[in-house]
Design a protein around this nucleic acid. Structure first.
Lengths: 263, 263
DNA sequence: TCAACGAAAAATCATACTTTTAATTGACTT
DNA sequence: AAGTCAATTAAAAGTATGATTTTTCGTTGA
């Protein structure tokens, strides 16, 4: 984290010691999202999973309930518990998003994420320009300052970039926009995984200038300008993801940056 | 449902006979969303709820796991299970949305929903215009036809309106846009609860014409036009929700239109 | 064709035991 | 005497096990 900069959020790692249920949920969730357990398939029966994970039926049932709550599986008497189609998954669920991230960023997934940001963030910026309080503006300015620091590190830049986008979503003062924090986080880390602007001083300067435009528009309470400026930034990311049709195999993102969700 | 029109979705009520766990999840979820159990408060202990709901501890624990998966509560040893802040809720979760709907549409909630539609649906329309298959266009046209039928009933209009919007989201061919079906559904029903266009033949004709513009733009593969046309439609709804600052107390929507979610 | 039956799997219940962790207690330092 | 800190305690979550009930698909037989 950037010292001095106001912190609106925290990467806060989940308890390192996860419960049995957590572990099972995580492994099954990942298996489902990665299609190792394909849609429509039946999860192994109780006895088999009990042996595989060395846990009790209680743990399994609670894990199933969690997965079911996220739309990933559906239990039916006499049939078993089967994996639901992707259309039924709660894609906005932070855990589901993080499982996606951990399976590696497939090109289409990056495109879909980018399109989502393209829809959401410009509107968030417009709303922020309209409603931001002086305090919220201060927070945004703080991240902007951190981002444009002379000696910014790669990690510091990512932190500030993310912090800025989340602060804008917060300033929109609409709980739905706040609810997509994880989506922004995953998308941003994905983009920066492909190519960080910090690598090139030209692109770094460009990225900073583009973000500056967003902040200025929000400061001046100019919604259309804020919308436009955010569109430019997101468009940039979308284009980069289009270029990355061929990419390295399953880059598992830094666990510190992408914590494995809540309890 | 409209006969003849291609059906991309179905209101299909969840199993009318809900399990004990379902019932408990539903009642607690509703209590939380309605702030009858305020954020930060502790859920009653096991023994108390066991007595209150007449169920076993197993049922309670599985209900807690479901609520926890949706971000509504967090369990902690020695403390208990406490209600989390609204910022932590998975607002896009279909169940959470439906609980919101059933607590009645507060003015700010309508505004927030409207702003969300304003962000999402125009982009969905633009993407649909870009990618729709002939089959998807046919489905959209089908709903358009149903909507503009001479003798359309109020219910028939709502069905077609919703069907059209969901078909557009489907044609965007981006799973995230598909994932917001419930949001669109809730928002639309909310808007129409306030004031249905069917009441006035002038507004009915206007609404039909506005939707026609969306369909035409998608048919002609014109993304900017589709985006613009959708903006007009959503803006209409937003304005209506602004007018409705004063409204009737907690209108519980028709249970047939808003099923209580999945297992 | 359809209703009654059987069985497989989920759902529920009951009880006992383990682990986590906030809060209390009490020794120890200043 | 007042405050700090570590050991203890107990409340609540978490896990384990076994039995019973309910749901529902498939089959059997009228």
């Amino acid at each position: 984290m950037v010292p001095g900069a106001p912190s609106t959020y925290h990467y806060q790692a989940t308890t390192p010691v996860r419960s049995h249920t957590q572990r099972v949920v995580d492994e099954l969730g990942l298996a489902i999202v990665s299609s190792r357990l394909p849609s429509g398939s039946l999860l192994p029966g109780d006895s088999e999973l009990i042996e595989q994970y060395r846990v009790s039926r209680t743990v399994l049932r609670e894990a199933f309930k969690t997965l079911s709550a996220k739309g990933l599986v559906q239990a039916k008497a006499r049939i078993g518990t089967r994996v639901r189609g992707r259309a039924d998954w709660n894609l906005f669920d932070p855990d589901v998003l993080l499982w996606h991230a951990r399976t590696g960023f497939a090109p289409e997934f990056l495109t879909h994420l980018g399109e989502m940001r393209m829809a959401l963030e410009p509107e968030a910026a417009a709303l922020a320009a309209q409603r931001r309080t002086p305090e919220q503006l201060e927070v945004i300015e703080g991240w902007m300052t951190a981002m444009s620091a002379e000696d910014v590190s790669a990690q510091g830049f990512v932190d500030a970039d993310l912090g800025l986008h989340l602060a804008v979503a917060d300033a929109a003062s609409n709980p739905f926009f706040l609810s997509i924090s994880t989506l922004i986080e995953v998308a941003l880390v994905a983009m920066l995984t492909i190519s960080s602007p910090v690598e090139s001083s030209v692109r770094l300067g460009q990225s900073i200038a583009q973000h500056r435009a967003i902040v200025d528009a929000i400061a001046e309470r100019d919604p259309p300008a804020a919308r436009k400026a955010m569109q430019v930034v997101v468009q940039q990311g979308l284009e980069r993801s289009h270029q990355a049709t061929i990419r390295a195999p399953a880059p598992v993102p830094d666990q510190a940056v992408l914590p494995s969700g809540r309890a």
